[in-house]
């Protein structure tokens, strides 16, 4: 392929999803400068691999590259302080506070939500970002995260339950 033509096609099909790429990188790295590094590297990788892109859906394709870039970046940087795995997290924390109010009776504060989302295990935060912020289908999430559709479904259910539980605990905690 002729290179200026390749760039033009890349700008038309892939570059429109730069915001999505950066948003995912931001939620994965949980840091603004790291998200920029990962996004830059992912866009260069995407351009390099673009000759091999045959699909029609550029967004999940790009998000998958962002995700892979993030994991190799984390490996390189020996970020082992990453959050606990999903399995460990399944252990319920005893809560002796009074039953927190139902979420739909609450005015959910965006800052509180952002902080709570950031404390979720990586797998949960990632699946929620893709579903709720990027509006990806189960099929797209399965392709991006390289997991079966059934796992997408169960992981999303558990992620939502945990987010809801943490939010309700926080709301109960901050309210007198």
């Amino acid at each position: 392929m002729d290179n200026p033509d390749k760039l033009r096609r890349f700008e038309q099909t892939v570059l429109p999803h730069l915001d999505a790429a950066h948003n995912l990188a931001r939620w994965l790295t949980k840091s603004a400068p790291d998200a920029e590094d990962v996004t830059q590297e992912a866009m260069l990788r995407a351009f390099r691999f673009f000759d091999g892109f045959r699909g029609s859906e550029a967004r999940p394709w790009l998000l998958q590259i962002v995700r892979n870039t993030f994991y190799s970046w984390r490996e390189q940087n020996h970020r082992l302080e990453q959050s606990f795995s999903v399995e460990e997290e399944a252990v319920e924390i005893a809560d002796d506070r009074p039953t927190p109010p139902e979420l739909h009776q609450q005015d959910l504060d965006a800052r509180l939500l952002r902080e709570t989302l950031a404390t979720l295990p990586d797998d949960f935060r990632e699946v929620l970002t893709l579903r709720e912020l990027e509006d990806c289908s189960y099929k797209e999430i399965a392709a991006i995260m390289n997991i079966p559709m059934g796992t997408v479904m169960s992981r999303l259910a558990r992620a939502r339950q945990q987010l809801e539980r943490l939010l309700r605990q926080r709301i109960a905690g901050v309210q007198p």
Partner: peptide, 11 residues
């Protein structure tokens, strides 16, 4: 609540 702009980070 998750659609709040504070939760989205565009480039």
């Amino acid at each position: 609540a998750l659609t709040a702009p504070e939760l989205y980070y565009p480039a």
